[in-house]
Design a binder for these strands. Sequence first.
DNA 1: AAGTCGGGGGT
DNA 2: ACCCCAGACTT
Length: 428
Amino acid sequence: MKIEALVRNDVWRNEFRRALGKWYRVHGRHLPWRSSADPYRVWISEIMLQQTTVAAVIPYFERFISQFPTVHELANASENDVLRLWEGLGYYSRARNLHKAAIQIVDLFGGHFPNDVRILQTLPGIGRYTAGAIASFAFQLPAAIVEANTLRLYSRLIGLELDPRSTGGQKALWEFAEWLVLGNESISGINAGDFNQALMDIGSVICRPVEPDCPACPLSVFCEARARNLQQSIPLPKKRIEISQVTEASIALFHKTRVLLRKRSDAERWAGLWDFVRFEVNEKDARQLSIPSRKHVGQQKSVSKSPRRQSGYLQSLLAFETAEPYLQTLPEAWTHHLHSETGVYVRNAEAVTEIRHSVTRFRIRLLCFRAQVIYPPEPALNNYQWFELEELFSLPLSRTGRQFFELLQGSRIFASDDADETGVSRNP
DNA sequence: AAGTCGGGGGT
DNA sequence: ACCCCAGACTT
């Protein structure tokens, strides 16, 4: 049935609602943020869940709520502390917008959440989906939602052959979603919030991207894709993006016991997070250096998957502490960059490790070094700042920054090297 | 309409 | 390798 015909078919809609409500009462998922309709908790969970899997969010949600139980604690927190709790979850602008929105909710709305989708969308980080989610989950208003799960489910239900991410596809999906949720309560037996949750659960558990479990689906008789056996080809896949290889260097500069960090600006990746000196390098310079690779250290292949690749970590630490030839002369281009960027000259550069990681469309080889500052001792160029190493426990770092820091913690070679001009002293 | 922004997990 | 994930925001 075409969507134009569908949105006028009240009989279809009522039967659909009954089937969905019946299924949800038995099969609905139990998730931490579903135990309460507190708009604050709904909001936190929805922001965390943007482009992030349920399993990844759960521990972050628990920690965040216990640290900031209400919007007031969040509004009064520092951005650093908010980002520190967000560290590892990614898309850090979410955390910064969350903090800004908390301040607005306190200042503009007296700490009370607006219960209107239009007003909700004026808050930073809240778009059409999140506004609908808060309105329906927290206030039981008949607001529509379209996100990853429902996008797939609705696309199949209406047999959408347009790209569901295109303007036209989005229009059709939102129109269908609005029609579906409007005035449903007395028929499905569940409120608008549970109604939307039920749709997401079906999308997540049954109407999966590949191999949807149509035989188990309470909505299969309502499904246009199923009727035409198109459930594998609807929705149209996203067009894949091209990956670029990049090589970067990250250098922990020490003066006595302190290390030099910079808070990354709004205009770059990891905005608001702190990082060591870091810059892109060319492949030719990188090839001349000998760097302990965490992947190739040691003989055993056994890398325990959980909880945090212990063997690989310990092995690289061991190799680092016992390695001799890792004292390096940095390429001239690097020392030049270091000086113009921070104002310092360095000595005793040592390769610490190589980290490989992916960020958005980049595949990055990160070469991590440590060096000592010889002149001048305390620069203050370009937003750089000196910290005791221990202070990094409470500063928000990127994932790779945290990994690097943990290696520096474990090695502590510079600890007693303050006035030693002859070279690196290694503690036995 | 297209690009940008993370990081983890699953296959 | 590749795909996916309770999207929002900028250009």
